[in-house]
Write a protein that binds this DNA or RNA. Structure first.
Length: 186
DNA sequence: ACGATGATGAAC
DNA sequence: TTCATCATCGTA
């Protein structure tokens, strides 16, 4: 399981290093898992795309704390976004998990079966993995039901592009802080 | 191309 | 208290 220290680094580095790691989500029904293949970094108060550019509010408070926690928010009144917070106390940051590859589900924690549903978008991922605001501000850890494991998966490569859906972010919108593993590189 | 749908933050 | 905005997705 990835420990807190993994997240206490500059957000773009954490976002890049999360590619190929395995996301786990435990619910009363069973365990979901998938290989993280798309992330985005939201880094610091100066980043106009980051919610923290508005300052420390009730919503963004968790990002100002030491990294290693879960930040969930609702967008368009419908979709929960899963973020993993980064950096040290008082420097806000978070990685948006936009998708996983080869999503699987296990009822007994042993035998995993592939899920047919796609999880190649942040809203679809949280719906499939049953991730909602009940996880907001909890630590990224088995005890909270959501954690990440380094299973030694080697990637053949990845690409970085501007982030999705942040046209309002002015000079920050072109920053190549989206990281994606194309299917042929996995 | 567009509407669903509700939390958030800023203005009043 | 109201209002515009929004790190999306399914249907068309």
């Amino acid at each position: 399981m990835l420990e807190k220290e993994f997240f206490l680094r500059p957000t773009p580095e954490v976002a890049k290093d999360l590619l190929g790691k395995v996301l786990y989500r435990k619910t009363p029904e069973g365990i979901y898992r998938g290989i993280i293949n798309e992330t985005e970094a939201y880094h610091g108060m100066n980043d106009k795309a980051c919610h923290c550019s508005k300052g420390r509010t009730k919503r963004t408070d968790i990002m100002f704390k030491e990294g290693g926690n879960i930040y969930i928010y609702l967008i368009y009144g419908m979709y929960h976004m899963l973020n993993l917070t980064t950096c040290k106390e008082n420097f806000p940051g978070a990685v948006l998990i936009r998708g996983v590859a080869y999503p699987e589900f296990s009822k007994d924690g042993q035998t995993f079966i592939p899920l047919s549903s796609k999880t190649d978008g942040p809203g679809k991922l949280t719906k499939t993995f049953q991730i909602d605001k009940s996880l907001n501000t909890l630590p990224i850890h088995k005890i909270s039901g959501l954690w990440v494991v380094d299973e030694g998966i080697m990637l053949k490569g990845f690409i970085s592009t501007p982030r999705i859906g942040i046209d309002y972010a002015q000079e920050w919108k072109e920053k190549p802080w989206r990281f994606y593993v194309p299917p042929e590189k996995l």
